[in-house]
Computed example of a mutant assay.
Amino acid sequence: MSHQQLAALDVVVGYTRGARVLDGASLTVPEGRRLALLGANGSGKTTLLRCLSGALAPTKGRITVDGATLQHTRKGLQAHRQEVQLVLQDPDDQLFSASVAQDVSFGPMNLGLPEPEVRARVAEALDLLAVTHLAARPTHQLSYGERKRVAIAGAVAMRPCVLLLDEPTAGLDPSAVTEALAALTRLQASGSTVVMSTHDVDLALGWADEVAVVVDGTVTQGAPDVVLGDDALLARARLDRPWTLTLGARLQALGLLPPGPLPRDTDALLAALPAPAEASAGAGAKEAIHPPSAATRGVELPLPGPSGGGR
């Protein structure tokens, strides 16, 4: 899979008798990297993903791949869907074949590929998503997390340059989230650009190379710690500040973290903290400058006399 740049330029989408969902939204998907798309319910995240995938034609603006505008013709869309694949939030909207292997093979077969090539793609996709052991399993017997990964495998079998995932971790327990993120890491390592929409700001901060926030019909895009550290933007988007940034900023203020970019996940935060010996030495130094008061040492202070004066 070769890397190609997917972009939305000044996209406008408005549904009948409603306000514009997207109103001049622009987004550049960085080639070969991980992009998290955030926003409140109804902000337009899914609409933007549908535009990027070719499933929805914008009212105004355009979708481009390496600068070439997507043409919403049969030929144009067929070519686009070999480069860009969208996986919907609910896997049951995509799974319909009797078995996992049959479902994953559907896309490559529709391309008219020879059977050996189809088999190779199916095996590759199942391996990347760690669901090879489910190949013969009926799709209706899968857990929700397994169905999510099989739905992604069906898109991966098309060998797209860009994989768009609408809330791939929604509804999953922590173990299944870990498995899904590990699968996405393998996909990126194999040559795919991965875009994931999510409400989880902490997940986005730790996982993504770049983040984009959809709010008021437009998109703000940039480095995760910069965009997700913008309290005014997060308030407009009805998103919480990631707890790692909140805690990291507080620890910096207390002198327990060095100045500079804040850690983006728990492991990085713990690694940045001083060792216990250093922390103790620092505390001792502070005590030498500001010794604890008698009250903090448990010594009972004398009460003032009747005149209200001290000793």
Rank of each mutant, 00 (worst) to 15 (best):
K148S: 02
R147F: 07
E146A: 07
P138G: 11
Q141H: 15
R149G: 12
R149W: 09
E146W: 03
R149H: 13
P160S: 10
M158Y: 08
A135D: 09
C161S: 15
A155Q: 08
L163I: 01
A151R: 05
R137L: 05
P160E: 02
S143N: 12
V156D: 02
I152L: 04
T139K: 08
V156M: 01
I152P: 11
P160N: 03
A153W: 01
A151T: 08
T132L: 06
R159C: 06
L142T: 06
Y144P: 06
V156H: 03
R149S: 10
A136D: 15
V150L: 08
H140V: 13
R159F: 08
T132I: 06
H140F: 15
I152M: 14
A157H: 02
I152W: 05
V162Y: 08
A155F: 03
M158Q: 06
E146T: 09
T132W: 09
P138C: 05
R149A: 05
R159I: 03
A151W: 01
C161V: 07
A136R: 15
G145S: 11
A151F: 05
L134A: 14
V156A: 01
R137A: 12
V162G: 09
Y144W: 14
T132C: 11
Q141C: 11
R159D: 03
R137T: 12
A157S: 12
I152V: 15
A135L: 13
M158V: 09
A135M: 11
A157K: 03
R147E: 06
E146H: 12
L134S: 12
M158P: 00
A135G: 14
Q141A: 14
A135Y: 00
M158S: 05
A136Y: 00
C161P: 03
G154V: 04
A157D: 07
Y144C: 05
V156G: 00
S143P: 13
A153S: 00
Q141R: 14
H133G: 07
L142N: 08
S143V: 13
A136M: 08
G154R: 09
A157V: 03
L134W: 05
A136K: 14
I152N: 02
Q141T: 11
E146N: 10
V150R: 11
P138M: 01
P138S: 11
Y144Q: 14
G154F: 08
K148G: 03
G145D: 12
L142H: 02
G154E: 10
L134K: 04
G145P: 10
R147I: 04
T139C: 14
A155M: 01
Q141Y: 10
K148W: 05
G154S: 13
P138V: 03
S143L: 11
V162R: 05
T139D: 04
A135K: 14
M158N: 09
L163Q: 00
A153T: 01
E146P: 05
Q141E: 15
I152S: 04
G145Y: 09
A157Q: 04
T139V: 15
K148C: 04
S143M: 13
A135N: 10
A155D: 02
T132N: 10
V150I: 15
K148M: 08
E146M: 04
